Each structure stands twice: as C-alpha cells, then as structure tokens.
Amino acid sequence: MTWHMPAETAPQDRVWMAFPREGATLGEGSAAREAGYAAWAAVANAIAARQPVTMIVDPTEVVRARRMLDGAIEIVERRIDDFWLRDSGPTFVHDVQGGLAAVDWIFNGWGGADWTSAAHDRDLARFIAGIAGVPLVPSLLVNEGGGIHVDGAGTLLATETVQLGVERNPHADAGRVAEEFARTLGAEKTIWLPRGLTRDYDAFGTRGHVDIVACLPQPGVILLHQQRDASHPDHAVMQAIRAQLEGETDAQGRRFEIIDIPAPAALTDAHGFVDYSYINHLVINGAVIACTFGEDAADAQARDILGQAYPGRAVVGVDARELFARGGGIHCITQQQPSPR
C-alpha cells in the first residue's frame, strides 16, 4: 500500500483541535489561564465560521469549552495531557484510490519533556481515526505533525534536531527516516534543515519544528521566516537556512522560489528572544488563518504575502502572541482532515 499526504491547500472536510486544560503550558494564575483559553477559542471560532471543527476536550474543561466555543463546533470528550493537536494527533493521508487514512506516529511528548507525561495522548491518533472512520497507518517513528511539511508533490521539509534527535529516534539515521516518510507520506525527497528557531529549544519548545521556519504553499515555492534584526540569534540561523535552500531542488528537480516573510519587530518577551513567525499559519477551504502579533505594519505585510502565496483565499488574522508564549502557533494547535479524493 502506498500512502500520500496531500498539500495543505487540498480540499478539507474538517479541522481537529484540542481544548486547553490546566497544566504547565496553559500557565499559572487565573489571568494566564484565561488568556490561554481565549487564544485557543479564537482560532477555533475563526475556523468554524468557514468549515467544520471537531474539538477534543478533557472532561475537566467541557463546561468552559461549551461556553467559549462557537455552537457549530463539535465537542468530543476525552482525557488528554496537552493540547497541541497537530503533534499529538494523526497525520491524514490518502491511499492509492483516494480514500483517507491516518498515520499514527509514536508521540513521546516532544522528546520526553518533563512537563508532560503524554500518557493519555499516545493513543490519541487511534482515537481520532476511529471517530473519523478511517484506517490507521502505524509507524514506529517518533514524530509530530509540526515537524514536517509537504508540497503534495513528493517534497518534504524536516529538521535534523527533531526526527534525528536522540530524544526521539536515537537509533535512526536520515536515510531510514526518509524511507519511513516515503512509506507513510509518499515523500520522494526529504530536505533536512539543520535546526529550528532559537526559542524552540527552550523548556516548552519542540527542539526545532519546521512549521515556524518554512512551508511549501505550492510545489517549487518556499515561504521562509526572515529575521532582519542582526541582534536576534535567529538572524544568523535563517541566513544559513536560506543559503542552504537556495542550493536545494524539490522532488521534481526544480530550484525553489523563496519568498521571505519578515518577522514582526518585537525581539523579546519576559522569557527571552521570541520566535514570532508568520509561517505558522493554517490553510483551510477558502481562507488562511494567519498569526498576528499586534504590529499593524508587519501584520499587514504578512497578510499581503500570504494572500499572494495562496491566491483565491481570504487571509484572516488571529492574535497569536498567547499561543507563542506557550510554545507554538496556529498551525501547531490544528490538524486538517483532507477530503477523500
């Protein structure tokens, strides 16, 4: 059986999310927790205005979720540990006939982070596949959905510090991981970036997820995070990654058109250098749900770039600062379920 992950621009049946529950990443104190709940709800409600959303909700949060979420959002009650659904949930793929299936990666809490046990999230992909009524594609690779990005035409982006890191797959090498991406996702070529953004290696980071660094809006095109300020450590990180990508080709042998999306002006928050990135957006039917950061000029420029990269789609901004303060963005908390072909 050959599986194929479609581009994120492919038609979708719904988006899956998980509602926050109390814990390390939600924050301490009522103000921090309420800000986290509101951030997740804002993203969900923006999507639900345009297509179906199913929300996994821990039993401790069902009352709150029903109060804060659009009534059109389907709520499924289930015990969870964390709520970054792109990572703990499945990756949806097509079979050769165009039917849908769900890849069940091994999830170990982003390399065994000490702030989550992942005990209740390890079989979340199987649970979601059951609700969706699709077969499961088992994998022995420790991986998360935010650690990969595909163009739907054979090219996949990944980072060496995620799938090849000792915290996830200590006995794997690049060739074996690429073979598993070929088997489960139909990836003909894996492009390995050396690392992710600096903040992503802090306590609540993923150790280098690609979905805040680069994405593939269409075959042959890369949207790339750009940090223009030389005082930010990601300035040098992204210069090196851009230089690498300038020399790469996709699965069809084409050189990439690279489109930079400049980061907002904010460099730091209370915890150090930020990794605010417009790359971490979600493509849905007819729209792009885009991160904003409270900076009118930078947010508008990013919306314009995204609008050109995804012609025919409205670009809808949602403030993502509270998401990034907890370790991710809009793409990280969502997972699209493509339609059968």
Rank of each mutant, 00 (worst) to 15 (best):
W3C: 01
W3F: 15
H4T: 08
P11Y: 11
D13I: 04
R21A: 05
G23F: 05
T25M: 13
E34K: 15
G36R: 10
W40F: 10
A41I: 01
A42E: 12
R50Y: 04
D58Y: 12
V63I: 14
I73D: 07
I73W: 08
L85H: 14
S88A: 11
F92R: 00
H94I: 07
L100K: 10
G111Q: 04
T116N: 09
L124S: 01
A125E: 13
G145T: 07
A153D: 13
A153C: 12
L157V: 09
T159G: 04
G165K: 07
A174N: 04
E180A: 14
G186N: 09
A187Q: 03
I191P: 11
A203V: 12
F204D: 13
V210T: 00
A214Y: 12
C215Y: 15
P217A: 01
Q218I: 03
G220S: 10
Q239E: 13
A240P: 07
A243I: 10
G247Q: 11
A251P: 08
P264G: 03
L267A: 04
A270V: 10
D275R: 09
Y278N: 01
I279K: 04
L282K: 07
N285T: 04
I289E: 00
A290G: 03
F293W: 11
Q301K: 14
A302E: 00
D304L: 14
Q308A: 15
A314V: 10
G317Q: 00
E322H: 10
F324A: 09
C332Q: 10
C332I: 09
T334M: 14
P338H: 06
